[in-house]
Each structure stands twice: as structure tokens, then as C-alpha cells.
């Protein structure tokens, strides 16, 4: 695996706008993960083409935050999902 992998939502994992609860959720096998604003922003950038660095760069720009901080948040959040096999790195 490269040091700057491209994250991908595998088949069976879907981002869903929950209009009843007014939030975004990640629908995965047998569970629904309620997402906060940061989690939603990160996963909306996961398109199967952008690397972690590219995603972090875009989010840092959008939120006016230091890129190293954003990169570390993105990495930690997605690593957690990869560990549960809910996101793939390629």
C-alpha cells in the first residue's frame, strides 16, 4: 500500500441523507453509523479517485484549517473505517 492511498467506499457501504433525523449516515452491513459534520465532509470527498492528500487539501481549503491537522483527522477517521472493512484503501 502506498503512503497516500485512495480511499473507496466498497459495495455494501453507502452514504445516505437521513431526512427524518436531519443528518448524514453511513449505511453498512447490519448497521447505520450516524455521522457528525466532519465525518460527513470527509466521506463526501471519498470518490474512489482522490487520495488522502487530495481530500485533506480540499477540506483544509474549504474550512480554512491547517492542512497537517486536517490530514491527521482524515487519516484517523478513515483508518478506523478501514479497520472495520467499511472503507478500502487502494
Amino acid at each position: 500500500m502506498t503512503t497516500d492511498p485512495v480511499p473507496l467506499l466498497p459495495r455494501g457501504t453507502r452514504l445516505h441523507q437521513d431526512r427524518v433525523r436531519d443528518t448524514w449516515v453511513l449505511l453498512v452491513p447490519e448497521r447505520a453509523l450516524l455521522l457528525d459534520e466532519i465525518g460527513t465532509a470527509i466521506l463526501q470527498e471519498v470518490d474512489g479517485r482522490s487520495s488522502l492528500a487530495a481530500i485533506s487539501c480540499r477540506l483544509a481549503e474549504r474550512y480554512g484549517a491547517p492542512e497537517p491537522d486536517v490530514a491527521s483527522d482524515v487519516r484517523e477517521f478513515l483508518d478506523g473505517l478501514v479497520g472495520q472493512r467499511l472503507v478500502d484503501y487502494q
Binding site: H16, V20, R21, E30, A32
Partner: peptide, 9 residues
């Protein structure tokens, strides 16, 4: 779905 169910088994 209208009620708020997300997962259908």
C-alpha cells in the same frame, strides 16, 4: 422509511 427506518432485514 418515512418513520425513520434505515436498515431493512
Amino acid at each position: 422509511a418515512s418513520l425513520g427506518v434505515l436498515q431493512l432485514h
